[in-house]
């Protein structure tokens, strides 16, 4: 931290400042993972167990009780696993990102790091967990390919782009929500409810093509829909809904811009409050 510190810098200066401290972000991520695995020996299992069990439940509900195997792409279980792993990355980043300044307030108060670091660090930690969970996805893809139920196509190259889009969006949401949550106590509850509603407004457990025309605009303008389109494209033969992707990209960039602006405006007040 020998860098010169001046009170206020422009947006580019702030990005550069976070980049300068990337090794510290790495330290924090390592610490997060250590804490997570020091507390429970099931540590790694938990990150994959939750989405897998949920996949199993939805699979059971839709195919065994409602007898509808056409809700999503086929094979439906694989469709669910892709969606729920990604959704877990999304919700956990949002809930932890929102409390990123509060949860480590002692650290925020005692180090002069650029405050954006705390948000980026949460998304980075969750990203690592998400990446750790991908072998499970690969395993299921291998099983379904071996059984001849699906084929991996060239659009698989879109998968990392989907993850990149998700990262941009999550950093944006984190920057937006972290200072607001630090100032307004009720925010955490509001976020919890909104996330639950958003889950059903996102094509995680159903295919966007199944949505009636009148509601399609809701789905398409949901940024996670675009992310899921990109992540699923290589594993299923259904066409990509490019409208969702374009809108998702636009939305993510707007969120990132808005988040940065709000973060800078509220930073002062937050530092006095925590």
């Amino acid at each position: 931290m020998t860098a010169t510190r001046v009170s206020s810098t422009g947006p580019t200066g702030r990005v550069a400042a976070v980049w300068q401290h990337r090794s510290i972000v790495r330290t924090l991520v390592v610490r997060d993972l250590r804490v997570r695995y020091a507390r429970s020996w099931l540590g790694y299992l938990w990150t994959v167990l939750d989405p897998l069990l949920m996949s199993l439940i939805y699979f059971f509900v839709f195919t065994q009780i409602f007898h509808r195997s056409d809700v999503g792409h086929k094979p439906y279980f694989l469709f669910l696993v892709v969606g729920l792993l990604s959704w877990q990355f999304f919700t956990q980043s949002i809930t932890d990102g929102a409390t990123s300044l509060l949860a480590d307030s002692k650290l925020v108060r005692s180090t002069s790091l650029p405050r954006e670091v705390w948000v980026v660090r949460v998304v980075a930690s969750k990203l690592v967990e998400y990446v750790y969970s991908l072998p499970v996805l690969v395993l299921f893809v291998a099983i379904y390919v071996a059984r001849g139920d699906t084929h991996v196509n060239a659009r698989i190259v879109l998968f990392p782009l989907g993850v990149a889009l998700q990262i941009v969006m999550l950093v944006g949401f984190g920057l937006l929500l972290a200072p607001v949550t630090a100032l307004v106590t009720d925010m955490q509850r509001v976020i919890r409810i909104l996330l639950r509603m958003l889950f059903y407004a996102t094509p995680v457990i159903y295919s966007p093509a199944r949505v009636p025309k009148g509601f399609r605009v809701v789905i398409e303008s949901n940024p996670m829909a675009g992310v899921l389109e990109l992540q699923r494209a290589g594993l299923f033969k259904e066409p990509i809904l490019w409208r969702s992707v374009v809108l998702g990209v636009a939305f993510s960039l707007v969120i990132l811009g808005l988040g940065t602006w709000v973060f800078v405006r509220l930073e002062r007040a937050v530092l006095k409050e925590i």
Binding site: M1, T2, A3, T4, R5, V6, S7, S8, K106, L107, V108, R109, S110, T111, S112, E267, R268, L271, K272
Partner: peptide, 24 residues
């Protein structure tokens, strides 16, 4: 670790803050 509401502070060298010692 706090920002002034008016005026400005320039610190041209690194700082070791013994403020919240066990915070980290």
């Amino acid at each position: 670790v706090m920002l002034p509401d008016e005026g400005h502070v320039e610190v041209t060298q690194g700082v070791a803050p013994l403020i919240e010692l066990t915070g980290g």
